[in-house]
Simulated assay, not measured.
Amino acid sequence: MTPPERYAFGASVRPLLVPKSDPCGRYADDGFWLALRTPQGPASLHLAREAGDLIATGHGPGARWAVDRADAIAGLRDDVSGFPVLAARHPLVHRLARTFSGVRLPATGLLFPRLLRAILEQKVTGKEAHRSYRAICRHFGEPAPGPAGLVLPPDPAAVAAAAYWEFHPFGVEQRRTQALLRAALVADRLERCADAAEATARMTALPGIGPWTAAETVRFAYGDSDAVSVGDFHIPNTVAYALAGEARGTDERMLELLEPFRGHRGRVCDLFALGGITAPKFGPRMPLRSFSRF
């Protein structure tokens, strides 16, 4: 595959991994590895830069599916052609769009692994959620094909068959666990959704899954550049501060300010994160907890 000019490989694929250590993938000197449960069976995908090109190699029964999907996973199907005109409507967005013009939005085509992560990230700190995610993946995961030593993402059927209290040692309380179990029961139906809109409708019909969780899922499962994480603790403040100089903002104000960028509203939020743009902080950090000790 031949990436576009200034393509930022690492910045494009790293959001598919939990920070610091992900049992199901890694980004290192040898390139990017990702373990997948594809419709054709388990697989590992390896992406590496070579003389300006991007080389995809698949391992396992689902290797063909993984390689056929490699360009989307690398973000090369992300259509940014109409974004520069929209970005020019605000000087900060215009500057960030130019600075990070090589970053592309990946689309795995697989919904449940990202939904699992999004549910775990509900109403807790990132460190808590990622700690739980690693523990669950190691508990339910099976060895992935290939030489990378990864584990496959949890099988939805195995998750659905577990009792909610089995997730307590992983630091997940009953509310999030029940949302996860409901999603696992209908994972096959969710994976068959034709697009982000259908997936969002089906996910938000499940108790315990709202617009924030759905947006966090479809952004990377479908490469939905317009998905806005309504209900986030930080993003409304960031958007209000970045676009209007207001230290605090509501979801309604955030959506009002993002409306001129419709079609790429989620991309604008991602640019603020890439650029380190944050609203002023006035309170203490949320404490780290462990539900496994409750």
Rank of each mutant, 00 (worst) to 15 (best):
L45S: 06
D251N: 15
P207V: 01
Y27V: 04
S12D: 01
H46T: 10
A201L: 09
T204W: 01
A184I: 05
E166R: 14
S12I: 08
A273D: 10
R134N: 07
C24S: 13
T57V: 15
Q178L: 14
V151E: 05
V228K: 07
G75I: 04
L92G: 06
G263S: 10
G171N: 08
P15E: 05
G231N: 05
P42V: 12
R267F: 11
P3E: 05
G58V: 11
F294V: 13
E50D: 13
S101W: 01
F170M: 14
R293D: 11
R14Y: 00
C193I: 06
L206I: 15
Q122P: 00
D53Q: 12
R202L: 11
A199P: 07
G31D: 07
S21I: 02
E50H: 15
G171Y: 06
L116K: 02
G276S: 07
R265K: 13
L271M: 05
R289D: 02
L105S: 05
F112P: 00
T204E: 11
F9K: 09
R189T: 13
V80R: 14
D188V: 08
A273T: 13
G60C: 08
S44L: 05
G149D: 01
L92E: 05
D155A: 14
F83I: 12
G52A: 02
D22N: 05
F261S: 03
L47F: 07
T278E: 13
T217D: 00
R95P: 04
E5R: 15
M203A: 02
P284M: 00
F100R: 01
T57K: 15
R267C: 04
R49Y: 00
G126N: 04
E252N: 06
V239M: 03
D68N: 15
S81G: 11
L86R: 12
S12Y: 02
W65L: 09
R37C: 09
N237G: 15
G109S: 01
Q174T: 13
R6S: 14
E173A: 14
R117D: 12
A74D: 00
P169T: 05
P91A: 09
C137Q: 04
R69L: 07
V85K: 14
V218P: 01
T238L: 05
A199G: 03
P280H: 09
R138V: 12
A199F: 04
S292H: 12
P284K: 11
D251E: 07
P284T: 09
A88W: 10
F140W: 02
R175K: 12
A87H: 10
H234V: 14
R64K: 15
F32A: 02
A148E: 10
R265E: 10
A88K: 14
L111T: 12
V18D: 12
V228Q: 06
R26E: 10
L255N: 09
R6Q: 14
Y241A: 10
R64L: 11
A163K: 04
S44C: 13
D226R: 11
A187C: 03
E191T: 08
